[in-house]
């Protein structure tokens, strides 16, 4: 199998993980809205996953950079830049004191990321199949 196919299999795995994480985030946010969870527990739980999510995505972006997949790299760049900016300005973690005020924003972010990862997932799947077909 070609290196391309391996790259995209890796990409599919990463985007699956991130997809699940975003679903988890979204569910947790609506739990907070319905008062099934208190803001302190929510922040403690979600904050564990903020950095791993960003790191996984960053790793994938770097793989694309190294393997020269420019188009998918470009597609991933906005999310990468967004995550990097949040970490740089130290605003990536959820703040239990402000969570109800910022909940709408967080939910929006989660939805957008969810949509992106979903699209990317199918894109990578297509790319992988294309790479395999090309090899045959």
């Amino acid at each position: 199998m070609a290196a391309d196919a391996y790259t995209f299999i890796f990409a599919i795995l990463i985007s699956l993980v991130n997809l699940f994480l975003q679903v988890f985030f979204t569910i947790m946010y609506s739990d907070l809205e319905c008062d099934y969870i208190n803001p302190i527990d929510l922040c403690n739980r979600l904050n564990n996953y903020v950095l791993p999510e960003a790191a996984a995505h960053a790793a994938l972006t770097i793989v694309f950079l190294l393997t020269g997949h420019w188009i998918v790299l470009l597609l991933n760049a906005p999310i990468f830049a967004y995550n990097a900016h949040k970490i740089y300005t130290n605003t990536h973690l959820l703040d239990a004191t402000e969570i109800f005020r910022t909940l709408k924003k967080h939910k929006q972010e989660s939805f957008i990321k969810l949509a992106c990862y979903l699209v990317f997932f199918f894109l990578y799947l297509y790319c992988m199949i294309a790479a395999l077909v090309r090899e045959d």
Binding site: L32, E33, C34, D35, N38, P39, T97, I99, F100, R101
Partner: peptide, 14 residues
Amino acid sequence: SAFYGNFFSRSSDL
């Protein structure tokens, strides 16, 4: 829908 003042919002309406 929104609460202002010195306290901690423990849930969406508390």
